[in-house]
């Protein structure tokens, strides 16, 4: 670390970056900045939303499912849509910082790398949740599913799965931001890592999206989701300095 800067703003900023309360403040500032800039352009949101509607539509054409088949397919279909549409948002997360060298400025700012990473993750999580809730509504209409009947549980499961998606996705978005094949590499790396989460989330959201109660063994899957979230959040925070700063 450099010696404390004596000018007014410098010291204030550096002091702002120490302690848990200011860590939280820095995290929220980054998340708010990301959300604000996304809501102004809406480019990733619109693309992601349009993409998920197209997949839902194509799926219905491709398999023309009956109610019985929809029940079997719902969880898998939803999470494939979430994962594919999510990649669009996650790709933009760091790519958006490339013009005007914003990424260098962010890294050089007094925000510690874990706070920067967590803020980005939080912002992505909010955006992904918005896209997913909208696709759930579209799914409910297209496939005649009573997805609102167990809305609380469904949103909880989707939130847990999406946290894993944004934790892993944001870290890889940071890693791959300077690569030639960025758009291709991100899903290629993220999906295999996320397989446990996708499995668990599919098992849990399938019945919930059709308005049905969860089976007996659902507790194990829920524990898996929470465990994955905790382990990978800790790991990603520990590695964020290496991933972002170098």
């Amino acid at each position: 670390m450099t010696a404390p800067v004596q000018t007014g703003t410098g010291t204030r900023l550096r002091r702002a970056a120490a302690g848990p309360a200011s860590f939280l403040r820095a995290t929220l500032a980054i998340a708010a900045k990301d959300l604000r800039s996304e809501f102004r352009t809406k480019e990733a949101l619109n693309a992601s939303l349009a993409f998920s509607v197209v997949i839902l539509l194509l799926f219905s054409f491709a398999f023309d499912p009956t109610v019985e088949q929809t029940r079997a397919l719902a969880g898998g279909l939803l999470w494939l849509v979430f994962a594919f549409a999510g990649a669009l948002i996650l790709n933009r997360s760091f790519a958006r910082e490339l013009p005007n060298d914003c990424l260098d400025a962010l890294v050089a700012s007094p925000v510690p790398a874990p706070a920067l990473y967590l803020g980005k993750t939080l912002g992505n999580w909010v955006l992904l949740m918005l896209v997913e809730l909208a696709s759930l509504a579209v799914f409910g209409i297209f496939y005649n599913a009573a997805w609102t009947r167990r809305l609380g549980a469904l949103v909880g499961v989707v939130a847990l799965g999406t946290w894993a998606l944004s934790v892993v996705g944001t870290l890889f978005s940071a890693l791959t931001v300077n690569l030639r094949l960025r758009e291709l590499m991100l899903p290629l790396l993220v999906y295999p890592v996320l397989i446990p989460v996708l499995l668990g989330a599919i098992q849990l959201s399938g019945p919930l999206a059709m308005g049905e109660p969860l089976a007996e063994e659902a507790g194990a899957w829920l524990r898996l989701l929470v465990g994955f979230d905790v382990i990978f959040t800790a790991l990603a925070l520990a590695l964020s300095e290496s991933a972002l700063v170098g």
Partner: peptide, 13 residues
């Protein structure tokens, strides 16, 4: 650096 971060994630995964 990138490969090392990925390798650690993969090993935990």
């Amino acid at each position: 650096r990138i490969a090392a971060v990925f390798s650690l994630l993969a090993c935990v995964d």
